[in-house]
Design a protein around this nucleic acid. Structure first.
Lengths: 200, 200
DNA sequence: GAAAAAAATGAACATTGTTCAAAATTGGGA
DNA sequence: TCCCAATTTTGAACAATGTTCATTTTTTTC
């Protein structure tokens, strides 16, 4: 029977992903070490390389699970209101909340860079695009004149703007705005945008 | 005479900063190596550590010079139009242009992270804040009701939003929008925001 | 021009990702 | 149950890289 072997291999994969996620959550991507992951997962360093091609590959899988989580959050936000305006506000607020409450895990999504010349695998890019759909749905109601293509572009632009605010705020680089002010500002910002749409 | 020593030390500092900037411009922050910088600057690796505390310190100084460049660009944009609306659009367009034409150097500004628990030195944070002033000036005309504090916050939020769009677009992560569409989208976006303001 | 001070050097060290020969484990046939 | 071949796991060894520091070279001063 060889299904047992497969199962064990899969268990190791999960143990490694979980160990890596735990480490990232506690100390951030920069402090992640192959040896630490292996120790936490209860295996030798070398074993990591029998189930993943390298540490980047592990991180990719951690990010994949984060995107799944984030997808659930966005789905819930989408169902929390009826009007497209309210949905967009809810999506924004929940995105900020997720980023705040899962800072390191969320940051890993954007701070992780593959080595020069290695594009992200297609399956991972696709996971990103799924998220954009949650924005496109309410946006389509607000701007019925947009075709599929334009809608996709607008969704990305809107996400990028909100993400920029959340990102620079939480990382406290350029932008230092008090945490409790960010939500207020974001909501005001989204409403400004929506009103901008309506006036067109 | 010891001014000669100082001058030589200063020359080495500049040679190292220039070498690092060159390397970053060509291959990005991730490919930067202490040994390469030293070779390009015509000194031994060890010499680098006689004028900078570590490679992070060198990067900080490269970023500092980038901020100066960017400051000039923003000043020019500010003088290119009279109405605050037009100035904000010009600032946005020039920011996109700078990021596009100096991709790696610009990315280093945001991708560089100091090691855990080492806050950016105060002088460097201050350099960032100067840039926000260029946004605050036209914004003050558009929204005269805002006090100094609120104006500073709004400037940061506006910058963060524009930066988010430029950033995710150029880095081609989440957001894949064709390059030549980004400018159009950004201008439309800024105009939406401004109209949002006016409607308040 | 010589001694002292300063600066520059690059070999050596520590840390880390990754590999691979050897050891341990497993599966299945007798 | 026991054995052997196949598989898996292991961790020492390797390579790359940031950083240090004893030694060498250069500069300053008298």
């Amino acid at each position: 029977m060889s299904g047992k072997r497969e199962a064990k291999k899969e268990a190791l994969r999960q143990a490694i992903i979980n160990a890596a996620r735990q480490r990232i959550a506690e100390s951030g991507l920069d402090e992640l070490r192959a040896r630490d992951i292996a120790k936490d997962a209860g295996c030798a360093v070398g074993s990591l390389y029998t189930v993943f091609s390298d540490v980047d590959d592990v991180i990719l899988h951690v990010n994949s699970s984060t995107l799944t989580q984030l997808g659930s959050v966005m789905e819930a936000a989408s169902n929390s209101a009826d009007s497209p305006q309210e949905v967009l506000v809810a999506l924004t607020v929940e995105y900020l909340k997720f980023a705040t409450e899962n800072r390191n895990i969320w940051a890993a999504l954007f701070n992780h860079r593959l080595p020069e010349g290695a594009p992200a695998p297609e399956w991972h890019v696709a996971e990103h695009l799924v998220l954009m759909r949650w924005i496109a749905i309410p946006l389509a109601k607000l701007r019925p004149e947009l075709d599929e293509k334009a809608l996709a572009v607008q969704s990305r632009i809107l996400f990028a703007a909100v993400h920029g605010i959340v990102s620079l705020s939480l990382e406290g680089r350029f932008v230092a705005v008090r945490r409790r002010d960010i939500e207020t500002q974001l909501v005001q910002f989204i409403n400004d945008i929506i009103r901008g749409f309506e006036k067109e």
